[in-house]
Design a protein around this nucleic acid. Structure first.
Lengths: 253, 253
DNA sequence: AATGAACGTTGCAATCAATGCAACGTCCCT
DNA sequence: AGGGACGTTGCATTGATTGCAACGTTCATT
């Protein structure tokens, strides 16, 4: 809608790939160097980009601070956190909380496993949307046309032999998740890691977030992990109770 | 420099305070509603803001994901992390890593205490710049005029009776930190929490980051915490060795 | 049920801000 | 000393951005 702002914002993901100099930015934007310079200057004034000692630009500190505040404003996170911690204390494995927003699913909270073997994931990182247990629950709740459209649009990378291979399979997964009220990922993202997940609902009954427990094969088998499912679901339901009670029916992350 | 982009970016900190509707945004920007609408639309297209079910805007998921990538690009963080973990395993207390960038100091990594009592802090959050031990080390290394200018510009909130009260006292703190090569915060931010910190240097000898160990009084006294100082300094030096060796003298966060 | 307020949205014409160009400065490498 | 690469600035032109006014909806009030 606004060309100037559009261009300026396009610089950010570009810099997220790594530091870049003025010429590179100008080329990738398809604009004159002087134009890119002025956009970068404006971004700089707002702390969104930083100029390193070698004059190249990279993403700035303000961006990180803003994102931090953004997450702190998610009330579901505040409500859920103590529950996640309690669950973690009880079972020891890694616990995640994720939300869906405009074609992306991302982790907004994480409590680390107390076992020495830890899995890689990061708060704020988009999850592997086609295989993650939490993603299945979040997408399963979308209105049918939107769900279908999204499924068609996605890529289906074969992280492992058990990854969801295509849109049809994915939609089946979603139906299953919706029916049973929980979801799992058994080695679909990383060969040796399994997850079980349960949904958190808002006052309107819609899925507002999803939580999961993940553990590597070496610690517990998939079967053992499924044993924990009732506990995971109960925790999710507790969060649902608190969240759907507290919110004035607005805010659906 | 660019009015349109400037206005658009001004919306973000505004939304960081909490969700806002169109009229509010327009008022606070001092522009017509239609103008605000178009800016918000552009931000929306880039996922920087999200429109909740009640039509109000809040910060979006892409912003969070971008910040995530920004942090992953900080090589000092990658290098330091294992050292922080190891230190934490050895002493159990909370370990932080912080960098300075354009008048802000922020935590870019954290390893949680293994004691039940935990302190509040968050990766990505700007630290209390006038009292935090890490901030003293980072600012102490700035060129004299810049340091002075910044000290004058800062606010000196009295979090506790031991907070740094004014610019003069702060500059003395910085001098002390520079001389002794480490810094502490003894109840200057929260009455019962103490920290000790040590600097990490880049290939050029400048302070590139600072790390700290924090613990509440109830777990260890300030004196006991100071006992750990040699260990903290040694860890920081190890990181310095690895970082200043590895980097091609560019990139100074 | 009707009225009115509040809010978001759209089309339009005027203006002002963004653009690309070209020239300049600086640094670095040959 | 010369050439190349890169960042920076002033300027005239153009076209994107702006505020306005009118419209559409939703929601609360009478």
């Amino acid at each position: 809608m606004s060309q100037t702002v559009d261009r300026a914002l396009s610089i950010l993901p570009l810099l997220a790939e790594g530091p870049a100099d003025l010429g590179t930015v100008a080329d990738r934007l398809g604009v004159h160097k002087s134009t890119a310079l002025r956009l970068l200057r404006t971004l700089h004034e707002h702390g969104m980009v930083y100029r390193q000692s070698d004059q190249r630009y990279r993403l700035g500190a303000r961006l990180i601070a803003l994102a931090q505040e953004a997450m702190e404003n998610l009330d579901i996170r505040e409500i859920a956190h103590p529950h996640l911690v309690r669950l973690n204390e009880r079972i020891g494995h890694t616990v995640h909380l994720a939300v869906y927003e405009e074609d992306e699913v991302l982790y907004i909270d994480k409590v680390e496993s107390r076992y020495p073997v830890r899995m890689y994931s990061r708060i704020g990182k988009p999850v592997a949307i086609t295989v993650a247990a939490v993603a299945k629950l979040l997408l399963a709740d979308l209105p049918e046309p939107e769900r279908r459209a999204l499924a068609e649009k996605l890529d289906y990378p074969m992280y492992t032999s058990r990854s969801t291979p295509n849109a049809a399979a994915f939609l089946r997964e979603l139906d299953k998740a919706r029916e049973q009220g929980w979801a799992s990922d058994l080695g679909g993202h990383e060969e040796s890691i399994n997850c079980v997940a349960a949904p958190v609902r808002g006052a309107d009954g819609r899925v507002a977030a999803a939580m999961s427990v993940s553990a590597p094969n070496v610690v517990v088998t998939a079967d053992e992990l499924l044993t924990l499912l009732p506990l995971v679901r109960r925790t999710a339901d507790e969060i649902t109770g608190e969240y759907s009670g507290k919110t004035p029916a607005k805010d659906a992350p």
